[in-house]
Amino acid sequence: MTTSRPAEFGDEKLVTLAQKGQSEAFEVLVERYKQKAYRIAFDFTRDREEAKDLSQEAFLRAFTHLKGFDLRAGFYTWFYRILVNLCLDYRRRRGRIAWEPFDEKTHMDGGQSEMAGAISSPDREAMSGEISRRVGEALQALSAKQRTAFILKNHQGLSIHEIAKMMQSAEGTVKTHIHRAVTTLRQRLAELV
């Protein structure tokens, strides 16, 4: 007779067990989504410790309100709405977020690495820093909703449909936010590179 391990359970079963008080089931959900949650929080905060704190706070809130959660909605979508709202609250409290210069070890993809290889290291760092600063200023120029929709689409690769559910907006509204965000960023960043 085979017994299933909690790590093999689907989200719905884990939530049901957690609602009955089995926190080990919720810990499996944490392990399953912690990296995604962290990356979303990092996109908003640009700070590792803040991103960790925000994503953990989102998990704690989800655990606290789990009994009121309707399984039909899907844990993933419900949790990310909590996380995104926390991130938006964070931005409202913090105001402007200082944009840290790129760390060249984490930034480059293949094509850009080739380009960077042809330039001296100090110049490359200066250029990366300048790009990073300009990108930060450009993102700051967006409205909160434009920035949220853009980050969820551009950074996280979520579909328009998923973003609309998370932001509790119509899909047409989300498309408009993304369109305006992209055209603003293009105008502000066009002179780079």
Binding site: F102, S132, H155, R186
Partner: peptide, 25 residues
């Protein structure tokens, strides 16, 4: 050309994730 520049990926080390899980517990 421009939109990929807006992404600043962060890949914390394994130790970070171990600490993350312990903190959550």
């Amino acid at each position: 050309r421009l939109l990929p520049l807006t992404i600043k990926p962060d890949e914390p080390p394994q130790l970070f994730w171990q600490s993350y899980s312990k903190e959550m517990q």
